[in-house]
């Protein structure tokens, strides 16, 4: 009896919490279809802000920058992070404390310190050599830096989950080191590589602070554009572009759900 009541109360609480979590997003989506420029009164349904969006070159180029940044940084981070994950696994019996500290550093470093450290460093290098002028290039370098640890940890935990004798079996069955990498290691950790790529991509798209400090005038990403628009006083297309970004996340969530349905061992990652 009592247990049932607790469970019912928790059930109600669950829906209240979901309401709390989705309310701000829902407001953004709702007002993106508002026919007037107001965040308080919804007059009638319209797509005018979406048309305005398509006509806004700044937003379109910001979108393009975000995609280029997320794509290229994720590819590099998956490459380097996978190598580290494998190295950590293969040599896990050695003392690798220094490496672990190094890997955790980008995770525990407050974004703001990370951002300004890179910004001032890039400015100094630029003053000395002319390289690393503010723009997409330095942004990619910084994004790769904070994505590497997540990739390395995901890949490492996948390796730990594999039966270690599989490595022996591959050797025993005539696989040379190169063939071993290609026909055994890469396929065996493929699920981890996919989720590492998606996590890196999400981290990159989600980042504002580090991008903000390392970007140049010509390399605004969507979050930077939105930030600027909010600071200057709200321009209404923001609801529309934000709605599109929310939609992209929800589609990604559904895809990841379908993937994890097939492979129940990969839990969703948060940030």
């Amino acid at each position: 009896m009592k247990r049932g009541a607790l469970k019912r109360a928790l059930g109600i609480y669950w829906w209240v919490l979901l309401f709390f979590l989705y309310l701000p997003l829902a407001v953004v989506v709702l007002f993106s279809f508002n026919s007037i420029n107001s965040a308080a009164i919804f007059e009638s349904f319209s797509l005018r802000w979406y048309y305005r969006l398509l006509a806004n070159d700044q937003i379109m180029s910001a979108l393009w920058h975000s995609i280029v940044l997320a794509m290229s940084s994720s590819v590099i981070a998956v490459l380097l992070g996978t190598l580290i994950g494998y190295g950590l696994y293969r040599h896990r019996r050695r003392g690798l404390g220094w490496l672990i500290v190094l890997i955790y550093l980008p995770i525990v470093m407050p974004d703001i310190v990370f951002g300004i450290a890179d910004m001032t460093f890039f400015v100094r290098i630029n003053a000395l050599t002319g390289w690393l002028a503010p723009g997409l290039g330095p942004m990619i370098l910084s994004h790769v830096t904070f994505e590497i640890p997540f990739v390395a940890l995901i890949v490492y935990s996948r390796f730990v989950g594999l039966d270690p004798t599989l490595f022996d079996a591959a050797k025993d069955l005539y696989a040379s080191p190169v063939k071993r990498a290609w026909h055994f290691i890469v396929p065996a950790i493929k699920p981890a590589l996919i989720s590492a790529f998606f996590l890196s991509f999400t981290l990159s798209i989600d980042d504002f602070v580090i991008s903000f400090f390392t970007s140049g005038p010509e390399s605004s990403t969507l979050p930077i554009y939105i930030w600027g628009a909010i600071r200057k006083g709200v321009t209404p297309e923001i609801n529309a572009i934000a709605t599109l970004m929310i939609a992209a996340v929800i589609v990604a969530a559904i895809i990841s759900l379908l993937v994890t349905r097939r492979r129940p061992q990969t839990p969703p990652e948060g940030r």
């Binding site: 599989l166 022996d168 079996a169 591959a170 069955l173 065996a188």
Partner: peptide
């Protein structure tokens, strides 16, 4: 090992998942 004409049946079977 990959150049030896010897094969092993492992205790855990070690089949590739």
């Amino acid at each position: 090992p990959h150049k030896r004409s010897v094969n092993t049946v492992f205790q855990s079977y070690a089949l590739f998942p």
